[in-house]
Design a protein around this nucleic acid. Structure first.
Length: 201
DNA sequence: GGTTCGATCCTCT
DNA sequence: GAGGATCGAACCT
């Protein structure tokens, strides 16, 4: 584990989405409500970039729902899916360019009892090993959509100096986007090799 | 071990 | 009115 935790800056999120995605691996996602803190280390993410990306919600244009993806990097894009689950993304790059990174999985670090309660599960690997699970564990819902993670007191990301070596990093096509034509094949899913906390192998 | 299927509702057509 | 950036239980083999 490590050193002092430093919050990720605006500048961090304004860079190229795929670069930010790789850099997010190993960073810490923090959810704070009063004195209650729940945190996990990010082990799996996916990039959704530009209006050409048919897997991206933004490919259907600028709508009420996707407006936040067209905003400035650093904001949270939280959406509801399959009638039951929430998914957390962090918006990247400049305003008016639609791009975001789906936070797919994390390794529980802090507030583990709280996560177990929120999930109704005991095993660590069942707490945040998928985008829906992660949001449930961290109590992330639509009320956090649009939250500025650079300045927010309740949802933000930090760097504790943890380094992810290149040989511990893997890429693959994204999950659940078979409908997206040529973009379905792009290896825009980034995850930590050998981590038991990724959503699947 | 793997595969299928139901839950459940918001968003866009 | 259809389908989805999911999950977990049930049902295969």
């Amino acid at each position: 584990m490590a050193g002092k935790r430093q919050r990720l800056s605006r500048k961090f999120f304004l860079r190229d989405t795929h670069v930010v995605a790789r850099d997010l691996l190993g960073k810490i996602l923090v959810r704070r409500r009063g004195k209650n803190i729940v945190a996990c280390r990010i082990v799996e993410v996916e990039s959704y970039v530009g209006h050409d990306d048919r897997a991206s919600h933004a490919s259907h244009g600028r709508t009420v729902r996707t407006e936040i993806m067209f905003g400035q990097g650093g904001h949270a894009y939280v959406y509801f899916i399959y009638g039951m689950y929430w998914c957390l993304n962090v918006v990247t790059e400049r305003a008016d360019f639609p791009a975001a990174i789906l936070i797919r999985a994390g390794e529980p670090l802090e507030g583990i009892d709280q996560m177990k309660r929120a999930r109704g599960r005991e095993k660590l690997v069942d707490l945040a090993s998928g985008p829906g699970k992660l949001c449930q564990a961290l109590s992330i819902t639509g009320t956090l959509n649009g939250e500025d993670m650079v300045t927010s007191k309740t949802l933000f990301m930090t760097d504790d100096g943890f380094k992810v070596r290149k040989q511990h990093l893997l890429q693959s096509p994204r999950i659940g986007v078979a409908y997206a034509g040529e973009h379905a094949l792009k290896p825009w899913r980034y995850f930590m090799k050998d981590s038991p906390y990724v959503s699947r192998i």
